[in-house]
Design a protein around this nucleic acid. Sequence first.
DNA 1: CCATTTAGTTTTCAATCTGAACTATATGGG
DNA 2: CCCATATAGTTCAGATTGAAAACTAAATGG
Lengths: 401, 401
Amino acid sequence: MNESTAPGRVGDVRRRNLSLVLDSIARTGDAKPSRAQLAAGTGLTKAAVSSLVADLVDSGLVSEVGLYRDGERGRPGQGLELSSRRGVIGMEINVDYLAVGLVDLGGNLRFHASVESRNRGLAAEKVMERLGGLAAEAKAAASAEKIAIMGGGLAVPGLVDGQHNMVLSAPNLHWENVQLHPRTLLEGAPLGVRLSNEANSAALGELWYGGGRPDFLYVSGEVGVGGGVIIGSELYTGPGGSAGELGHIVVHPEGPACSCGGAGCLETFAGQEAIFKAAGIPEGSLGGRTELLLAALAAQDPRATKAVHDAGRYLGVALASSARLMDIEAVVLGGHFALLAEWLRPALLASLERYAPGLLEPGNLTVSGLEHSGTLLGAAGQVIRSVIESPFEFLLASKLA
Amino acid sequence: MNESTAPGRVGDVRRRNLSLVLDSIARTGDAKPSRAQLAAGTGLTKAAVSSLVADLVDSGLVSEVGLYRDGERGRPGQGLELSSRRGVIGMEINVDYLAVGLVDLGGNLRFHASVESRNRGLAAEKVMERLGGLAAEAKAAASAEKIAIMGGGLAVPGLVDGQHNMVLSAPNLHWENVQLHPRTLLEGAPLGVRLSNEANSAALGELWYGGGRPDFLYVSGEVGVGGGVIIGSELYTGPGGSAGELGHIVVHPEGPACSCGGAGCLETFAGQEAIFKAAGIPEGSLGGRTELLLAALAAQDPRATKAVHDAGRYLGVALASSARLMDIEAVVLGGHFALLAEWLRPALLASLERYAPGLLEPGNLTVSGLEHSGTLLGAAGQVIRSVIESPFEFLLASKLA
DNA sequence: CCATTTAGTTTTCAATCTGAACTATATGGG
DNA sequence: CCCATATAGTTCAGATTGAAAACTAAATGG
């Protein structure tokens, strides 16, 4: 006997419709819909919407924002919007910086701060302590703006087990099977702190607060090459949660050994270190190397140009294979690759045309406009979306607290 | 306003529970559960299960099979099973044969027939006519066994648009944008005939009636190299429906041009034609070439051995990339590759170990045991599963007819 | 100032689950 | 042989919830 699926109960209908109405309000965004508009949009009756909205307003997730007067005849509607008094704190640990952001339910970044921090090889406790300082700033900003913090999201550049708050492997931080205690960053937040992968969070940020296409592959060029796969407006994580590892796709079977133990991986051709090395830019401060590279490219330095050209070519090989395997039709470049896009894009497009002609239209290869805040928005957004998708569970969690 | 999601109605609960109960009966399979066991397994009350089962029995999808007597005390239960009087016809068009099978609701292959047919380059009308002859045999077998035919599934080796019954591209048949009329093969079947891709169907057949693992990549080595991705016990088709094109993953950036317009694709190294050519087996009858190849391998012919070794090596590259990108942890070899498995497997495993060490355990690289019937079972199974997942809709469709 | 229009609420009804009581049918000990 | 016990399955009252329709509320405009 298989009991994996829960039986449908009468009350499930309300859970679903609560979410449907809340999601409609979220999607409609600035338009601030009335109950009647929600009824038309969702297919529910006005009576049902009224009842559902009453619950959402009681819970504090939705606020009425005055009358909706547009000069038409008839009684004006009450505009509804996601409460701007509820927020989530997004946090990010990366190789050379830490960042936090306060995001309200509507997805507005209400506060933002970051500090440089050489985290590579640093103990997790030390990093979490520094991050705690930043989180305290965000909490102070929240109470100054009277925003109640529902929970937090923490993104790290590595493979994570969000269920157990473990960083399974973050090679660029030199972390392996590190247990984190993210909840301590935000004591008292009813929904706790959700740990997630940096590239996946950035992809979700792009989905919810950026381009907004329902299907795309986000390519994160931080120190490593990562990826986030969005299919049908959802993050595809695969059965084990580690899908999207674009950096370790094999792009040349005779390629050099990779830190992952394999060989010929994309990261050995298009990772930051590989590009710097090929461009002949010596080790120094990381920020400085990126600037030197950009300067060299601007000056049409041949080694730099070739380095980026080769990276684009191999990125094209990886994207061609990815598009074939996962039927991906759009790609968003983020991180380092966004900075290099001007020089990277032509080689990448030529490579795609060679290996998978016609599969990806050039217009569907875009650059992320969110820059570094994409990761914060995505990390916080995961908690916000969980509330929008299961408001009933949030009501319970709030009542218990 | 976004109206993509339908509102929850009170009646949805019953739809869901109808499916839940039917699915429980299907999964329990030979055990023929009683209503009380179903109640325990699903979490529903006995009252609810009784009411749901009554509807399912009325519809003819489920039959009572006498008392369930096991020597225990208490009233014996009525055993329930999927009706063996309802069936679906699975059909397959491939490059050099046609096949049909009659599959009952419980997944038993009750009748099977195939004929050789050189379909490459043949007009679709002609092929469908021949297939119609085979389908008539299956229909006769069904009426002889008093099985009512609910619908059919038709698998073809190419990219299809099931919604519009179009074969968008089947290069090995030389079909391009061909409109089919599969419904004419089974006049009067209430659910019509569902068109699908051959590799995807074989993967689904493996899922439902073969190994039964919830996450795996099925590799179909027919004339081309295809793939079917199963994630969370569902077929992953990607946003456009063409995911799993393993044959056109780039495994060598300096590789030869491919028929798809790209270069260095897996198919140019591991397709049937490529292997035959590399093994030095001249063109003749297709069946004969396979036999010659197997004989040469058995005789340890160096060219044949190297050809298969190379194919395995490049297949390993493609699988390493796939595993990284989609987090795939198990692979099932089908078709041609199943026949060659003995010689292919060592090279493939060595290649995986080189390019993605530790990612795929050797025990998770298996060979399909269903052989050619896997595709038929999968093609028919898609219709069977659609009934199990939406019995309510099937009841409506049946009542209209 | 009242007809018209649109927003939102109240009321009645039907669907469907749960829970408890009840009926049906077996086993087994005295 | 009969009755206590156990298990299967049914019946019925109660609760939740959305649909449909009637109703109330609040605006515009001639």
